[in-house]
Amino acid sequence: MASIILRDVCLDYPLYGAYDFSLKRRLLGRLAGASTPTPTIRAIDNISIEASAGARIGLAGPNGSGKSTLLRLIAGVYPASSGHVGITGNIVPLLGLNAGVNMDFVAAENISLLLRISGRKPTPAMIDEIWAFTELEERMQRLPLRMFSSGMLMRVLFATATAFPADILLLDEWLSVVDENFSAKAEQRLLKLVSQAAIVIIASHDHDLLRRTCTSIVHLDRGRIVNTVYPEIHSAYPFELREKRA
């Protein structure tokens, strides 16, 4: 069963200046007895969040309030400086779609590489299914990605990233695909993915979106939880989904 438990978690983000990357400086500093500790900024300050299956958590707050850092901490990118981080279930972090793309490769190869990166063994059927979702022409599967327009590229990456359900889904901003015809379909697929995941955490500036999709909204400021809001009609999205499916 998927669960996330953060208890009094702090993250001190080391601010490496230009000189902090220098071993010579560091050794000389130590010899001179004037070693200064690397300055840190408390990116996450004493945050406790518990989520079990069914939780839809929205993270809101101004830029630099620690939303992305918190998502990365949950994903295991950053280790917590103190506190408990207990996570069960497989995490799919969709924090950026571009990671791992090789523009020189043909689309199909990119898809299979991206699937491998997320730990799946690609089969031709999987790739065809993903391709069908992009609504792009069959022959374009054999073209290198650098020949794609940015809209088409987004379609491919979005279709690949959202092809499989996750226990824990981490989203940094709602994945938007700007193409007009495609965006409704993309939205629907994302909603379906959200509805299938046991736990979803979304960081966003869009309050309406968070109110529509989340069971609780955590407001962050300078790494701290300011307050937690529980939107009343969090069941709105299945209706919306049903409408769109109909």
């Binding site: 295991g76 990118v77 981080v85 207990g86």
Partner: peptide, 19 residues
Amino acid sequence: AAPAPAVRASRAAAIGWPA
């Protein structure tokens, strides 16, 4: 009673070495 992996060792531990 504390949740078994108190602090995740690393993603390598979470993903597993074969993967």
